[in-house]
Write a protein that binds this DNA or RNA. Structure first.
Lengths: 202, 202, 202, 202
DNA sequence: GATGAATGAGTGTTCATTCAT
DNA sequence: GATGAATGAACACTCATTCAT
């Protein structure tokens, strides 16, 4: 990892734990192992580090959304196929691994959680990535499933709301609370699985 | 309001928006209208302000929990009475008004959200007040309702999980996001009402 | 002890250990057990405490000198009497007990030692009480002894210089160094005794 | 002189006059001609300046002691040579010029005198450099002289005690009292010379 | 790419002191 | 006699940043 990336990495770890303002250039440089003056070769100023992190997060998210779009716009599976095949796999595997469980994304979510109350740009991004986008993704997935006749059209809205609220709550409870340990990840996955099983299988 | 209370009030407003570390003693005193040295007559240091706020919050919460206990331990209503009488009123009126919508509590929740990642004391309090306590309160309410025969015992767990996750998600979405405006409160109440109506009435 | 005396007592203890400037009104009041504002009922300001201590010391010293004068101006003892009768007793008992070993005087000497480098008033007092006065007292004692024929007049100067330098060195080494413990007092007394024995007896 | 050395120089001058605590970083920087923040580039905090001074003093003293050892371990002069040749020259010239009269050492001794009452590290150093070391140096010098037969072995202890106490008293009287002026140095040297002359010549 | 040296503004905190009660 | 509440000035120290090398 080159110096610039190391700075961003260290900065994100610190920002997401203590907040942007509470972290000093000294703190970052001390951890990276460079002098403070060196940091200014790589970044214009402190704000520039944060902006670069946000930019990186945005393109990461754009990649995810593009990927999800490709999946949901694929021609529908044959009728009668088990409903969870596509939807649950997508939700479970893709979004969880590359988004909620991804270290970079997870730290960015924490940072947004911390900074949202006095940074409008981050507040909007926070609302979008934690509430709006996941809801819309679920909706497009279930709408597609509806075309296969698995669910009646008019029930979709509430089904999605139920799933979305459950997963959102679990996200805050397990993934945006304390350190992101293996135990918390497993607890999250277990609760998601139990919910899905009861709701759609049992 | 005396000087000490004014300091706590101003400090909480600032801490909950920008985080404890990012707020300076100068900021607080400027807003309160006292000299910095005066603040140190009322509080022994910056941390002492935070500790006093936490202490105040704890006793506030203790009051709420005691009140809830009194309600749920009242002798059960006559059979057949509409289930929402006691439960929804309690949930809607009491917990919402005196907790989520209460300005002091709301700001404390925001502060806890911000500080939880590097303050273990606040992390524990955060988990308790946003996840553990609400779930347990709902459980005791619904267990009581179950004794009146309104709900079958074995369904209670999932009903409560459903309600709890829905309300938790709404709390993060509307009450712990941006400024706590009347519009957001109304949006929150409407979504709670819609959910309750669909789930228990329709 | 009344409040005023308690303040002076505590102040002297602290001044003599950490220096006048390094001791705060807060420190003193904390130890005395009064509020800072109360101190200003008893003393005009911080400097006033120091001035009062100096004044008290001056009159203490005046008392000592008067006492010594009375002794040295008493009619001479009969010829042939052992020379140490009057001189050593005086030196040993009186000056040591009421001056060097006296807690108040000892602390004042320490205070003067600390403050002499930037307080001309205390520097003069320091020089007088540690170098000039003791030398002159010894001189008047030995001059009196000379009249009894015990010492030849012309040897007196060097005898006194010898005694004075020895006792001064011991004072700095044992009484103005570390805490004034019983051990240090005893070590001081032993060395004085050994010196006197060797010089005048052996 | 570079900035770091200038800071140490100014700090020592101020510390030795007013005491460590009574001197502010502002005072030092004002005299050196730098901003306060600059000082923290060179020293990690105020204590660090003091520690650096102590360290410098220690190595200075180590140098002196090594030098003295070399002299006293030189093969003895031929018998009958005037006793003061080596000893008095050494005492007079070397220890006085490079220790008591040396500006850095003199200021350090004053600093130690001031700080000894509440700084155990400095108290120990103070006792060593003003009482223990000089006594031992004199002892090794006179023991060497004794081998040449100038002094009887059994008289050495008291001779050294006499010299040591006399020079110690003079040090406190002339060199550690008021400003270290040429007049005081001369007065000190004259009294040393008079004492030596009377004691060993006359 | 990186650093040594510097800075002005700001940090939390303590200082001696005042004054109405 | 003593205190609660306040203050302006000073305290040691950290901040993000600059710039010549």
């Amino acid at each position: 990892m080159n110096t610039r990336d190391k700075i961003m990495d260290v900065a994100l770890n610190m920002f997401s734990e203590r907040g942007y303002e509470a972290v000093s250039i000294r703190d970052i440089c001390g951890e990276v192992g460079i002098k403070e003056s060196t940091l200014y070769y790589h970044f214009k100023n402190k704000k520039d580090i944060l902006d670069s992190l946000i930019e990186k997060f945005r393109s990461h998210i754009d990649g995810l959304l593009t990927h999800v779009d490709e999946i949901t716009e694929m021609p529908p599976q044959k009728k009668g196929k088990k409903h969870d095949d596509i939807s649950l796999k997508m939700v479970d595997s893709y979004m969880i691994d590359s988004y909620l469980f991804d270290p970079f994304c997870n730290l960015m979510l924490r940072l947004m959680m911390i900074e949202q109350f006095h940074n409008e740009e981050l507040r909007v991004l926070y609302e979008k990535t934690l509430f709006t986008d996941p809801y819309e993704i679920q909706m497009s997935v279930f709408k597609k499933l509806a075309t296969t006749g698995v669910f009646p059209e008019k029930e979709i809205e509430w089904i999605v709301k139920e799933i979305h609220s459950y997963m959102t709550m679990l996200t805050f409870k397990y993934l945006l609370n304390g350190e992101l340990t293996k135990e918390r990840k497993k607890a999250y996955q277990k609760e998601v699985h139990d919910f899905m099983t009861r709701r759609f299988i049992a």
